[in-house]
Simulated assay, not measured.
Amino acid sequence: MPRVALIVNPFASAVDEHRIKFVEEALARAADVATHLTERRGHATELARLVSDDVDAIFVYSGDGGFNEVVNGLGPDAPPLGCIPGGGTSVFPRGLGISRDPVTATEQLVEAFDQRRTRRISIGRVNGRRFLFNAGLLFDAELVRRIEAQRSHAGRPGDVAFAATLLKFIAEQRGRFDPVLEIDGVGRAAFVLVANADPYTFLGSIAVHVAPEATHEAGLYAIAPTRVRPRHIPQMCRYVVTGRRRPRSVLAVQDVDRLEVRCDRPLPLQVDGEDLGDVESAVFEAERKALSVLV
């Protein structure tokens, strides 16, 4: 009988004992299941390295942070990955067409495992850290940091808190963001958002389209406003909601394998919603067809 590993973040917002048991029972219909609960930051990476050579698939029941940790522990010959949404947003599985509901998603992924239905996708990497769908310098990284600071025992704040944090951040800057970094071969910009999938993220049920052309099979896509003033904000909002009519003040890079950025001062960096601290430079790279996922 096939063997699978189930890596669970028990602290994720949509994870509880009842749902873990359901996931285990659903997987047990198709394979022998070994469940591993994460205990600390980085633990999922360690677990992925430990189990990847001994199983036919790895299932992860977590939020995007857990998915990111697992993919950072997988080698080139790793078994297929099945991501069950257990976070408040769960951008990665939703972007692959997996149901947002953990129960429905589990049934969908068990069927994919039974039928060996996989998809080979590209992933990103910045300064050695892999990412599954997005990475950013300054703007979204600052938001991630502020949201993380509001985390409680119940998990990260929800969409209302995120919107309030966003508005407060823009208000503090008076809607003005000046150039503070240089993208090699592209130019100076106020911040940079890098995607290897669309949507970039979700705000509730609303998809945010930073790079609507991006696909999981291609390289990296990026947008970088040269500068932002209050009059630009409505244009930017329309663009990220509709994915159409990118403002002229926004630089764009499409389907590249490498992007180098130098900062005027240390700036916050995030990947898949995880704060990586401040950096003075960032090298974004694409790993094409690096990961097999169940869909």
Score class of each variant (00 low, 15 high):
Ala207Ile: 01
Asp140His: 13
Gly136Ser: 13
Leu132Ala: 03
Val144Phe: 02
Ser152Phe: 04
Ala149Ile: 11
Val210Gln: 06
Gly204Asp: 10
Asp140Gln: 11
Ala161Leu: 05
Gly187Pro: 12
Glu142Leu: 09
Ala161His: 04
Ala189Trp: 06
Leu132Val: 04
Phe202Arg: 01
Gly187Leu: 14
Phe139Pro: 00
Glu213Ser: 10
Ser205Pro: 09
Ala197Cys: 09
Asp140Asn: 15
Phe162His: 00
Glu172Ile: 02
Phe133Ala: 05
Gln150Thr: 14
Arg176Asp: 04
Gly204His: 04
Ala141Leu: 07
Glu148Tyr: 03
Ser152Asn: 05
Ala161Phe: 04
Ala171Asn: 13
Asp184Arg: 14
Phe162Arg: 00
Ile170Tyr: 13
Pro212His: 11
Leu138Ala: 15
Gly158Phe: 06
Asn196His: 05
Glu213Pro: 01
Phe162Tyr: 13
Phe169Gly: 00
Arg174Thr: 03
Phe139Glu: 05
Phe139Met: 12
Asp184Ile: 06
Asp178Asn: 11
Gly175Tyr: 07
Val194Trp: 12
Phe169Trp: 11
Ala195Gln: 10
Arg156Cys: 02
Val208Arg: 08
Glu142Tyr: 10
Leu138Gly: 05
Leu143Cys: 06
Phe191Val: 13
Asp184Glu: 15
Ala161Thr: 11
His209Leu: 14
Ile206Val: 15
Glu148Val: 09
Leu166Ser: 08
Leu167Asp: 04
Glu148Ala: 15
Gly185Glu: 10
Val210Asn: 05
Gln173Asp: 09
Arg145Gln: 12
Arg188Leu: 09
Arg156Met: 15
Gly187Val: 15
Asp159His: 06
Leu132Ser: 01
Leu137Val: 12
Gly136Asp: 09
Pro157Gly: 06
Asp159Thr: 14
Glu213Lys: 13
Ala163His: 00
Pro179Leu: 14
Leu167Pro: 01
Asp159Gln: 05
Val192Glu: 11
Pro179Ile: 14
Phe162Cys: 00
Leu137Asp: 01
Tyr200Leu: 09
Asp198Cys: 12
Gly187Arg: 14
Ala171His: 15
Ala141Phe: 03
Phe133Tyr: 14
Leu181Asn: 02
Ala135Gly: 11
Phe133Asn: 07
Gly175Val: 00
Val210Glu: 05
Asp178Met: 06
Ile206Lys: 10
Glu182Ser: 11
